[in-house]
Amino acid sequence: MNDSYEPVIVGFLCNWCSYRAADLAGTSRLHYAPNMRPIRVMCSARVEPQFVLKALREGADGVLIAGCHPGECHYVDGNIKALRRYELLKRMLRQLGIEEERVQLVWAAASEGNVLADAVNRMTEQLRRLGPLRWRETVLGGDAQPEERAGEMMAKEV
């Protein structure tokens, strides 16, 4: 792998716990890998599999979904719904040949800036080792024409 390669991670952070954890990490000046680009959602349950696939297809090397700890969801059990969806999505990603480390789900409470920062650091390190995703080669097998539509269809069906 090329030394200058830096993975890009799209992070979906829930408004109540993990986004605040990220805020706290910043406020506490916890320095962590700048590779995660945050998108705020109200709840991890709002994260559609399409969002994840969209990010990967648009060039992200990984996607981090972060929610409240089970039992502490602001919306009762949205994080559990996210977890269920995540397990299904993982199965599909495996079929597409996308490594498990590229899409991760973590729990971080509003007081756990360090947990979120550690998750980003850990994931960045894992992705550095994995290298770029190369959607075209990995998922479409180089021949973009017929499978492009297949990928698109699968994205739709999730």
Binding site: A22, D23, A25, G26, T27, R29, L30, H31, Y32, A33, P34, P38, A117
Partner: peptide
């Protein structure tokens, strides 16, 4: 949010 999530974090 380029402060908490960016300038303060690196």
């Amino acid at each position: 949010n380029i402060r908490e999530l960016d300038s303060w974090a690196t």
